[in-house]
Design a protein around this nucleic acid. Sequence first.
DNA 1: CAGGAAAAGTGCGTGTACGCAAATTTGCGC
DNA 2: GCGCAAATTTGCGTACACGCACTTTTCCTG
Lengths: 216, 216
Amino acid sequence: MTTPPGLREQKKQATREALREAALRLAVERGPDQVRVEDIAEAAGVSPRTYNNYFASREQAIVAAVTADREARIAAAIAARPAGVRLAEAITEAVIQQYTNTSERDSEVLLLITSRTALRDAFLDTTAEIEPPLTAVIAQRLGDTGAQTARVLAASVAAAVRIALEGWLRPAGTAGATGSFGAAGLVVPSGSLSDQLRAALAPLAPAFDAAERRTP
Amino acid sequence: MTTPPGLREQKKQATREALREAALRLAVERGPDQVRVEDIAEAAGVSPRTYNNYFASREQAIVAAVTADREARIAAAIAARPAGVRLAEAITEAVIQQYTNTSERDSEVLLLITSRTALRDAFLDTTAEIEPPLTAVIAQRLGDTGAQTARVLAASVAAAVRIALEGWLRPAGTAGATGSFGAAGLVVPSGSLSDQLRAALAPLAPAFDAAERRTP
DNA sequence: CAGGAAAAGTGCGTGTACGCAAATTTGCGC
DNA sequence: GCGCAAATTTGCGTACACGCACTTTTCCTG
């Protein structure tokens, strides 16, 4: 059913990644406001029109360089957990694991992202991407009868993650200007990201428990 | 604290409504694709630039004509319910009440909205507007300790409503073309809107119960 | 009621988003 | 290998979104 990765699809992914990388590189080099779609397209070796076949806005390519494939990794992380544990717990831990897996580079880029409202919004919008794979994983656990329930719970998780991220990087936006920054570790505005995520997801746990109880 | 409605604010609301009405009227008259921002602005007696001070996209004004003030009405409806009933129930009923309160005109316009993807998306996006008032109402019931919980639950409700609406008007989009339509009642794709909303909100009830139990 | 600060409205310029149709590339069967 | 059907890329044209600086309106205070 799943077509073996043809050369066509391969090339498409290559183009997508080239655009992502070019966008991020240019944004870091010049500052996010000094990068036009035209520049990104040129750097990736495609036409500006093609850029918009891959990304619907200038910001998407930049944030995609950080969030790429996060949805798939979260879904895999959940599926990897033993079937015995509570669904709520499996999801919480999987989400935390993936979102705190930020490399050194990522943490630098996050500063850049928070520095522009448009970028920040685009970044937060990527939380919606985890919905489809999350829905699939949840539906699998709940059985076919709970398809609608799975969608609602997945969307709720995405919303909670979004809120956690907002809370986490809000104070960061108020302080620094565009230019230099430094410090050793991550920016730790109001509690660690792990704590924010745990706190945001906790209220949903009873809903997961009830859903699981209905189809054990 | 709350400034008495100055003449300034009054005029702003008047402009906003003028834009809404003009947008909807033109969209119905000519078809949604034959209406430019310039046209709407002219019909409302403001400059095109001012249009974008009120609405961030061409579609927003059109859908706003249908969804105007829905958030406030939902919040009021919840607050109006006796403090004794379950929060989950109060919210569910209030939401259903407000979303099924469609006038004759609204049902006609909904057909128009579903006929264009961009309009449909803009319409679904309006569900996010209920979050802030919903957060306030929920937070009030849960006490100040549950502020974060209130946000998450409110966002979950908004997500559930969105899913319900999607499911409700999906089949409607596949059938009819732009032009004529008729029939007596509302379009009833897959179950009534009430049923869709109830089904989408049901999975969240345990989360509300648990939150209430924590601060009774 | 005059003065002036704050807010809303406007014009302009730039970059963006995307429908459409033509040109190019890819993959498959022969 | 050949050629064709499907998918992708591209150019073009149009409309939109919005930052910025400037004008006009509102409304508060003395």
